[in-house]
C-alpha cells in the first residue's frame, strides 16, 4: 500500500505569525477558533485538567503534546462535550460550548477521533463512512420508512464516501466489515469518517499511534491536506518528529496545565518542556508506554509484598 503514497515534496508550508504579543502560555491569537478559560477537571484528588486560558488558531495545524497522563485526552473530552468540567467555559467560533452535549458539538462542525480507535466493527467500511454524513433525511424514523424520500441523498452520500475512501486507500475494503481492518486502517477509517461531515475543526487524538511507518506518511499528507481545504486541525501526538514536521503551532500540557506554547522549533528547545517530560514520572496514567506500565506494575508488587512481612 505504501507504494501508492505520494511522497510529499519538501516541507509543508507553515502558517506563521498567528499570535498577538509576546509568546507565553495562553497567548492570544489573531484569529482563534477555540478560546477556553479556567477549564478544570478533577478525578477524586487528582487534577487532570487545569487550563487557565488557551486559544487555538483557525486554519492551522496545532499539536497538543505532553507526557502520559498530562490531561490531553481529558481536555479533548471536555472540549467536545464527552466529559463535564468542574469549572470553566469555552467558545467555538464565538459560540459558547459549555454544557452543550457532545453530539451537538459535532453538529456545529467540531469533530473528533479517539485515542483508542472506535471503528464500528460489525458495520461495513462503507456504512461506517455513510454514518458520518450530516443532515441525513433517512435518519428520521418516519422518513426512513419512505425510501423514495432519502434514496437520492443516500446515493450522493455514497459517492462522497467512496471518493473519501479512495483518498484514504480504503476503497477496496468498502464492503468488508470494519472489524476486518488492521489497526492502522481503522485509524484511517475513523479519520475519513470524521471528514464525511465536512467539519470546521478536526480534533485527532493520537492519529499516528499504532500506525505502521508506511501508512504514517500518507496520514501526515491527509492532515496537511485538511488545512489546504480550509479546515483547522488540533491533534495530540507523542512523536516529536512528526509534530515538528506538520504542526504550525504547538501547545504543551503537563499535569493538566498549559506549560508552554509556540511554533514547533521554539517550543522544543524550551527548557520548561523538557522539564515537563522529565518531571512526569509520578503521574498515574496507565497508558501504553511500557515504562509507565512497568512502574505501575512495580507499585502493585510493592503493595502486595508489604503485608507478607507484617
Amino acid at each position: 500500500m505504501s507504494s501508492d503514497v505520494k511522497p510529499t515534496k519538501g516541507s509543508p508550508v507553515k502558517s506563521v505569525d498567528m499570535h498577538v504579543g509576546e509568546i507565553v502560555p495562553g497567548v492570544p491569537k489573531k484569529d482563534p477558533i477555540i478560546v477556553a478559560d479556567h477549564v478544570t477537571r478533577t478525578f477524586g484528588g487528582l487534577t487532570a485538567v487545569d487550563v487557565d486560558h488557551v486559544e487555538i488558531p483557525r486554519n492551522a495545524i496545532t499539536a497538543l503534546i505532553g507526557p502520559n497522563g498530562a490531561g490531553k485526552t481529558t481536555f479533548f473530552n471536555l472540549l467536545t462535550g464527552f466529559d463535564k468540567p468542574d469549572t470553566g467555559k469555552w467558545t467555538f467560533m464565538g459560540k459558547s460550548l459549555a454544557g452543550i452535549p457532545s453530539f451537538r458539538v459535532a453538529r456545529l462542525g467540531q469533530v473528533r477521533t479517539f485515542q483508542l480507535t472506535k471503528a464500528l466493527s460489525l458495520l461495513t467500511v462503507l456504512d461506517n463512512m455513510k454514518l458520518g454524513a450530516k443532515g441525513q433525511k433517512g435518519e428520521n424514523m418516519f422518513v426512513a420508512l419512505l425510501p423514495w424520500l432519502w434514496r437520492k441523498q443516500e446515493e450522493e452520500i455514497e459517492a462522497k464516501a467512496m471518493e473519501l475512501l479512495a483518498r484514504f486507500k480504503l476503497d477496496t475494503k468498502a464492503e468488508d466489515y470494519a472489524a476486518s481492518l488492521s489497526g492502522g486502517q481503522r485509524k484511517l477509517l475513523e479519520m475519513a469518517r470524521a471528514l464525511m461531515s465536512d467539519p470546521t475543526l478536526v480534533m485527532l487524538d493520537e492519529p499516528m499511534a499504532g500506525v505502521n511507518p508506511a501508512l504514517t506518511q500518507s496520514l501526515l499528507d491527509h492532515i496537511l491536506d485538511l488545512k489546504t481545504q480550509g479546515m483547522t486541525v488540533l491533534f495530540v501526538e507523542h512523536d516529536m518528529q512528526m509534530v515538528r514536521h506538520i504542526a504550525d503551532w504547538v501547545i504543551v500540557m503537563a499535569e493538566g496545565k498549559i506549560v508552554a506554547e509556540g511554533p514547533p522549533d521554539a517550543v522544543m528547545s524550551n527548557p520548561a518542556v523538557i522539564d515537563a517530560y522529565l518531571g512526569s514520572h509520578h503521574d498515574q496514567d496507565l497508558g501504553e508506554d511500557p515504562d509507565q506500565e512497568k512502574e505501575n506494575v512495580n507499585a502493585i508488587k510493592e503493595l502486595l509484598d508489604a503485608d507478607d512481612k507484617s
Binding site: I300, K301, L303, L304
Partner: peptide
C-alpha cells in the same frame, strides 16, 4: 489485595504476576 487488583484492571494485575 490481588482480588482488588484484578477488579481494578485485569491486564495490569496479570502483568504484575498475579
Amino acid at each position: 489485595k490481588a482480588t482488588r487488583a484484578v477488579s481494578d484492571n485485569v491486564s495490569l494485575a496479570a502483568a504484575s504476576g498475579i
